[in-house]
Simulated scan of single mutants.
Amino acid sequence: MRKPPAPAAPKAHTLTRRTVAVGLAAGLGTVALATGASGPVLAADEPLKVGFIYVGPVGDFGWSHQHDQGRQGVEEALGDAVETTYVESVPEGADAERVLTQLAASGHDLIFTTSFGFMNATLKAARKFPNVKFEHATGYKRADNVSTYAARFYEGRYVIGVIAGHMTKSNTIGYIASVPIPEVVRGVNAFTQGLRSVNPDATVKVIWVNSWYDPGKEREAAETLVAQGADVLTQHTDSPAPVQVAEEKGIYAFGQASDMTQFGPDAHLTAIVDDWRGYYVERTKAVMDGTWESTDTWGGLASGMVAISDYNPAMPPEVVEAAEAARAAIESGELHPLAGPLRDQTGQVLIADGEAPDDGALLSMDWFVEGVQGQVPK
């Protein structure tokens, strides 16, 4: 569920085994390939063309970076049988629809659209090109040629919450939040539940930056949280700026979407890693062998779509053991990160003891649990 940084001209790249770049986006020219009225016409011996559009730069070391790692996984797994294209820093709205139309018209058989805000553009392009398969990340609207997929990041956030509860001394955790959508809200809540499961006195201070990728705002928010007493930082934003601040201040932090150890070797405790490789390879193979169908996928720790990176050696063995126990319980289904009793910030029980929210409740979550300082903007 991604929103773009400040709009910039999209950059398009076609990568084959020879790494050749061509322009596809607005202002970068076009590629002339034979197309039919409803989709590309390809020779039998041509590679399957797979396109990806990203809301941020592949160098964000977060969300878009990890999707591009998945694209590279398709190249590595399927070799010369595929040719992949990616377009980075695509603003949501008309620009996204234009880029998707260009990709579909230029011979791409399968297109992954990797931001929640690309949803309507994906549906519009899919209607124009019914023979092209589309995969939309974190969306909920499907069609015969549109699938949706997402990851249960909140499962990983519970695990790092457990770690934070053990590692904090101030009992104040700083949380840099991106935009107030259910994905982010339930992540804050799951983190807080994990935190308070081992340290009931700890609280979470949230600062919203209203962007998925803005290193300047992320740094400012991190510094503000440290000034307010936070000795552990976590984030649902995509740059490594908060980890860098933690390294400078001598405190701890968690990476987002990818292992960010390189940006704070002493500070970085671990990271929630988005691993799209398996899904991208599987869905590309399904197009190749004719078994692709419109589906909805929401994978978590058990599926490998969400992973936890290596632990910092600074973590005592008992903290590693607690984190691993939480992860194993979530993977087995024994533990739901947002199981009741779940209280809101006023103390009212919204999820009863022994119950767990269904997917509908998770996908519409717009309230914070007890222990969170800050509000969900309306």
Rank of each mutant, 00 (worst) to 15 (best):
D45L: 10
P47Y: 05
P57D: 02
G62H: 01
D60Y: 06
A32K: 15
G51D: 02
K49G: 01
G36C: 04
G62W: 00
G59A: 04
Y54Q: 03
A44V: 11
A34G: 11
G59T: 05
V55D: 03
G62C: 00
P47E: 03
P57H: 02
G62R: 00
G62D: 00
G56P: 05
G51P: 10
S38C: 07
G51V: 06
P40N: 07
A34Q: 15
V55E: 04
F52G: 02
G36E: 04
F61R: 11
G29K: 11
F61V: 01
F52E: 02
A43V: 01
K49W: 01
P40D: 05
G56L: 14
A43M: 07
A32F: 08
G29Y: 12
G62P: 03
V41R: 14
A37E: 10
P57Y: 01
G29L: 10
D45N: 15
E46A: 15
D45E: 14
V41H: 07
A43D: 09
L33H: 06
A34W: 04
G59L: 02
G39I: 00
P40K: 11
E46D: 15
F52H: 10
V41S: 11
A34H: 11
P47R: 06
G36R: 10
G39K: 04
T30P: 10
A44F: 09
P47W: 09
L42I: 05
F52D: 02
V41Q: 12
G39P: 06
K49R: 15
A34S: 12
D45V: 08
I53R: 02
L42K: 15
P40H: 11
A37C: 02
P47Q: 06
I53V: 13
G29W: 10
S38Y: 09
P47I: 03
V55R: 02
F52P: 08
G59P: 08
K49V: 00
G29F: 12
V41I: 14
S38K: 14
K49I: 00
S38L: 07
A34I: 08
L48S: 06
T30R: 15
I53P: 06
F61E: 04
V55C: 15
E46V: 08
P57S: 08
T35E: 10
G39C: 04
A32P: 09
Y54E: 00
G39W: 03
L33W: 01
V58E: 09
L33V: 03
A37Q: 12
P40T: 03
V31L: 14
V41A: 13
L48Q: 06
E46G: 11
S38D: 10
F61D: 03
G56C: 09
E46T: 11
V58N: 05
V31W: 07
V41C: 08
L48V: 13
T30A: 12
G56S: 15
V55G: 13
T30H: 15
S38F: 08
G51S: 09
D60H: 08
A43H: 12
V50F: 14
I53D: 01
V50I: 15
V55H: 11
